[in-house]
Amino acid sequence: MIGIAAGRGRDRVAVEFDPLDGARITSLMAAGREWLAPSPPRDPAGDFTGSGTGGWDEVVPTVAACTMADGTRLPDHGDAWRLEWTVVSSGPSTSTAEVVLRSVPLQFARTLTVEAGRLRAEYVATATGADGVPLLWSAHPLFAAPPGTRIVTGEPEPQLMGEFPEAGPPVAWPDGGGIDGVDGALKAFTAGQDRARIEHADGQGLTLRWDADALPHLGLFWDTGVFADQPVVAIEPTTARRDAASAVVDELPVVLPGHPLRWWLELSVDEPAA
């Protein structure tokens, strides 16, 4: 397990990730709160949703298992989460890890950096073969969602297009974006956003910002216990408007040999209003 931290008191941010377990971020402590759902053990040979669902994974090169036009089979939630990552460098407040995927010729690197009240993640995708590789990447942080937790985006609330339990049709926002308005699980996509916020019942919030040029789509997820062991919500900036790479392959950015793609995310935590 690798740990990095910075700041003091309520401004302290501490992150832990496990390079042996797909570099899954298992803990994000900030402002005295653990933000992520627990990360139970899982089977890398199984399906992602049948394993210990929790923490924060890197999902690439697909979310839903699918078969590409050339016959390449992409596994459930990709294969970055199934593999051991190599820690390239690590210090008290920053760490870089990388992995070479098996399903497609792609190397994927992530640098985490913490400072007072903030976590920044920077990514680089590099083609390792002679051809370009379509890139479906999605952040996959599963945040603990006790009663009263809600997802907040811009005003007015953007239109949502359903992905689960049904893909395609528009869906309504849960009441106030809250976990209390969901019965079961709901996954939907929207676009045109560069930030979103998780807010707990006490008003404390975590705001996620991202590189909207590289990540033009946003997946939003509410689950009261269908896939995760406890209620969770997720803010998932992504390169795709669907979970299956095969459904949107012609729309995906392509990682060309010699031309890595780069993008970033940043999280900041605030205190409840007085």
Rank of each mutant, 00 (worst) to 15 (best):
G3R: 10
G3Q: 11
I4Y: 01
A6R: 07
G7K: 06
G9Y: 03
V13S: 00
V13D: 05
F17K: 00
G22H: 03
R24V: 15
R24H: 08
M29I: 03
A30L: 04
A31H: 10
G32Q: 07
G32R: 07
L36R: 05
A37F: 00
A37N: 11
P38C: 08
S39M: 09
P44H: 09
A45D: 13
F48E: 02
T49I: 13
G50E: 15
T53L: 15
T53V: 15
T53D: 07
G55W: 01
V59D: 04
V63A: 12
T67N: 00
M68P: 04
G71N: 09
T72Q: 11
R73E: 14
A80F: 01
W81E: 10
E84D: 08
E84N: 07
T86D: 14
G91H: 08
S93Y: 02
S95P: 10
A97T: 13
V100F: 04
S103E: 13
S103K: 05
V104Q: 08
L106Y: 10
L106Q: 08
Q107L: 03
F108P: 05
A109G: 05
A109Q: 11
A109P: 05
R110D: 03
T111M: 10
E115A: 15
A121E: 14
T126D: 09
T126Y: 03
A130K: 06
D131Q: 12
L136C: 12
W137F: 11
W137T: 14
A144W: 02
A144S: 13
P146C: 05
P147A: 13
T153C: 15
E157F: 06
Q159V: 12
Q159F: 04
M161N: 12
E163K: 05
F164Y: 12
A167R: 15
P174R: 07
G177W: 05
G178Y: 03
V182F: 02
V182A: 07
D183W: 04
G184W: 03
G192V: 10
G192F: 09
G192A: 11
G192C: 05
R195M: 06
H200S: 13
G203V: 11
G205L: 01
L206C: 13
T207K: 07
D211A: 04
H217Q: 14
L218F: 03
G219M: 10
L220N: 12
W222Y: 09
F227T: 06
A234R: 01
I235S: 09
I235H: 01
T238Q: 09
T238H: 00
T239Q: 01
A240Y: 03
R241G: 14
R241N: 12
R241P: 13
A244N: 09
A244D: 15
A244M: 08
S246K: 04
V248I: 11
L252V: 14
P253K: 12
H259A: 15
E266L: 04
S268V: 08
A273L: 11
A274M: 02
A274Y: 09
A274T: 12
